[in-house]
Simulated assay, not measured.
Amino acid sequence: MSRSNPPARERRATRLARKAAETLAHDTAIHPNPSDRVVLAGSSGGHLAQLLPLRDLFAPDHRTWVTFQTPDAVGALAEEGDVVWGHHPTTRNIPNLLRNAAQAWRVMRRVRPDYVVSTGAAIALPYFVLSRLFGARTIYIEVYDRVDSATLTARLCRPFTDLFAVQWPEQRPLFRGAVVIGPLL
Rank of each mutant, 00 (worst) to 15 (best):
S2C: 08
R3T: 13
S4I: 15
P6H: 03
A8C: 09
A8Q: 15
R11D: 07
T14Q: 15
R15N: 13
R15H: 15
L16A: 06
L16I: 06
A17G: 06
A20W: 05
E22V: 04
L24C: 09
A29K: 14
A29V: 09
H31N: 10
N33A: 15
P34K: 01
D36A: 02
R37T: 13
V38C: 02
L40V: 05
G42R: 05
S43T: 14
S44L: 03
H47M: 05
L48F: 10
L51E: 11
L51W: 11
L52I: 12
P53H: 08
P53S: 02
L54K: 14
D56A: 09
F58Y: 02
D61M: 08
R63E: 02
T64H: 04
T67Q: 04
Q69F: 02
Q69D: 10
P71L: 08
D72F: 01
A73N: 08
V74K: 00
L77T: 05
E79F: 07
D82P: 00
V83I: 06
V84Y: 11
G86Y: 11
H88E: 12
H88V: 04
T90F: 04
T90K: 11
T90M: 13
T91F: 15
R92N: 13
R92C: 01
R92Q: 10
I94S: 09
L97Y: 13
L98E: 01
L98H: 02
N100D: 14
A101M: 09
A102V: 03
Q103E: 09
W105Y: 13
R106T: 15
R106K: 15
M108L: 12
R109H: 12
R109W: 11
V111N: 06
R112M: 06
R112S: 14
R112D: 10
P113A: 05
V116H: 05
S118N: 07
T119H: 03
G120S: 01
A121S: 14
A122C: 11
I123M: 01
A124I: 06
L125T: 14
P126K: 01
Y127P: 04
Y127K: 00
F128E: 00
V129D: 01
L130W: 05
L130I: 01
R132L: 13
F134S: 13
G135E: 02
A136D: 12
T138I: 10
I139D: 09
Y140Q: 01
I141K: 05
V143K: 13
D145C: 11
V147F: 02
L152A: 14
L152R: 10
T153P: 03
A154E: 07
R155W: 04
R155N: 14
C157M: 00
C157T: 13
C157A: 15
P159V: 00
P159H: 00
T161F: 06
L163S: 06
F164C: 04
A165C: 15
A165Y: 05
A165L: 09
V166L: 02
Q167S: 06
P169A: 13
E170L: 13
E170T: 08
P173Y: 05
P173S: 04
F175W: 12
R176F: 09
R176V: 12
G177H: 08
G177Y: 08
A178W: 05
A178G: 05
A178S: 12
V179T: 15
V179D: 03
I181P: 11
L184T: 06
L184N: 04
L185C: 07
